[in-house]
Simulated scan of single mutants.
Amino acid sequence: MTKKLVIIFISGLLLNSCKDIEKTNSNVQISNENNWSIQKLKDRAIQHLDSSKWDKELFIQDIETYNKYSDIFNSYPLNKSPFPVDKYDYAVSSIPFTIEKDSIIFKGVRIGEYENPESEKVIDKLTLLILSNDKDLEENTLVESRNYPYLTAQGIFKVTNNEYDWVFLASPDGFSTLLINMKLFDLRFGETIIIYPQMDKSFLYDQLEESPNNYEDFEDFKKVILNNSIIKQQIISEKKIK
C-alpha cells in the first residue's frame, strides 16, 4: 500500500510540475503547433540538443525527484531517469478504471492529453483493459510529458498467474503503438486494446476502433465493451484465468 501511495504522489507531482511549466512558459509555443510536420518534428529534436534552450529548473527538479524515488521509477518496465528537454506547454492524463458486471471484472487505464493547457477536456490516445476477475489486481501507470510533442506512458498489470508490462508511444503525426509483453499493436487500427490472460500464462487479445472519445459519458463506453459479441465469447471461455 505504501508503494502505491508513493507512486500516486509521484504521478501527481509530475503532472503538477507540467502544469506549472504551462503557466510560466505559455509563450514558448506557436499558435499552430498542433499541425506537426516532419520538418517541425526535426526542428524540435534539434532544440532538445541545444543546452541553451533546456528548461534547467525542470531538469534540476526531475533529478531531485528521481533521487528520492528511484526505487519506484526502477520498478516500471523502463527506468525513468532524468533528462533535459526544451521548454514545452503540454498536459497529460492517466485515468485508471474498472468495468464490472456480476463476476466479470476488467481493469484498465486511459492514457491521453489535454486538448490545451487551459482545457479540462482530455483526448484519449489509448484505452487498455485486462480481464482479471480480480478486484485487487495491481495496476501501476506512469504517463510522461517530457517527450513532448510525443505522448509516452508505461505500466504494469499483475494478475494471479502472470505480469503484463506495457509501453505506449503516440506521435503527433497520428502514428501510435502499444507494446505489451512483446506483442506490438499499431493503434492506427484501433486505440482500445483488451487483454485476456489464459490459465497456461499465454494471452489472447482484441483491438477495437471504439474509443471513449466517441461518447459523452464513459459509462456508455463501458456498456459497449460489455455488450460486444466478441468480448462476450472471451468472457465465457473456460481457458481464461479465473
Score class of each variant (00 low, 15 high):
G190T: 03
F175P: 02
G112H: 09
E210W: 09
N140V: 07
A45H: 11
L208Q: 06
D86V: 13
E100D: 08
S11M: 10
Y114L: 12
E238K: 10
L137D: 08
G190I: 03
V167I: 13
S94P: 06
I60Y: 06
P96A: 06
Q207S: 03
I30A: 06
P212V: 12
I123N: 14
I10L: 11
K240M: 03
N16K: 13
A91D: 14
I46Q: 15
Y90N: 12
P212A: 05
G155V: 08
K222G: 02
I104L: 14
I195Q: 00
T177F: 03
K242A: 09
V159W: 00
K23H: 12
K19S: 15
S51H: 05
L131M: 11
V92F: 06
N67E: 07
I63N: 03
Y164W: 05
L142G: 03
D200A: 01
S237M: 02
I7S: 10
I8V: 09
K53V: 07
V224K: 07
Q198F: 01
M1N: 11
S229K: 03
S26D: 05
M1C: 09
S202Q: 02
Q154L: 07
F157L: 09
L184G: 00
L58W: 06
V122R: 07
D102G: 02
L151N: 08
I46S: 11
T141V: 13
N181Y: 02
D124L: 03
E209D: 14
K87M: 05
L131K: 11
N161I: 04
D124R: 03
D55W: 01
Q233L: 08
I193P: 05
I60H: 03
K3R: 13
E144C: 11
N27K: 14
A153T: 06
L15S: 14
E22C: 15
N161H: 01
N140S: 10
R44M: 10
N27H: 12
D220C: 01
D62S: 04
D186W: 06
T160H: 03
S132C: 15
K56Q: 00
G174Q: 14
W36E: 08
F189D: 14
Q154I: 04
K101D: 04
F218G: 01
Y150R: 15
P117T: 13
L129P: 14
Y76A: 01
K56M: 04
N32K: 09
N227V: 00
I95Q: 13
